[in-house]
């Protein structure tokens, strides 16, 4: 399941593996495991820093290049060229909170698919997990059919 590539040597040092032992074991204590795992994300963090720098340079550079000549008309909210009526943050009836519910239920469920997906076909699981999968899919399908029957999925 793990796909650790070239991390152990680098990762062991800062994590402070088991002290007092001469030979450093390959990443097999929980600390080293965690260090190796999060090491990949430090690169991602570095890239995020690069991205933020890029945007900062773009914004600052843009400020130096562009003119700033605000007028009251220019700062008016756009409404097809006429003066805006009422305010922009209008109250709306959120009729699709039902979908939000549906979405949360389904999405939380499907998150659990990922860890399960890595082991379900391992020797010793096979048939049982397959039955479990159909039970899971059954629940989702019943939920969807219920919503359908309730007319939630009808639009006219």
């Amino acid at each position: 399941m793990t796909y650790v590539t070239d991390v152990p040597e680098m990762a062991v040092a800062p994590a402070g593996g088991p002290p007092g032992h001469g030979a450093v074991p390959a990443a097999d204590t929980p600390t080293q495991w965690a260090a190796a795992y999060f090491d990949g994300y430090s690169t991602v963090g570095l890239l995020a820093v690069v991205g933020v720098l890029f945007l900062t340079v773009a914004f600052v550079g843009g400020r130096l290049l562009r003119p700033v000549v605000p007028t009251p008309e220019k700062l008016l909210t756009y409404e097809c060229g006429v003066d805006p009526v009422g305010e922009g943050w209008a109250h709306t009836q959120v009729r699709y909170y039902v979908y939000a519910f549906l979405y949360v239920i389904f999405a939380v469920d499907s998150i659990f698919l990922f860890p399960w997906a890595t082991v379900f076909a391992e020797p010793g699981f096979g048939g049982t997990t397959l039955v479990e999968m159909f039970v899971f899919l059954g629940f989702l399908t019943v939920g969807l059919l219920y919503a359908w029957k309730k007319g939630v999925l009808e639009w006219t």
């Binding site: 550079g61 290049l65 562009r66 000549v69 700062l75």
Partner: peptide, 8 residues
Amino acid sequence: AQKEDVVP
């Protein structure tokens, strides 16, 4: 990049 940045 040279256009004015308008914030309503």
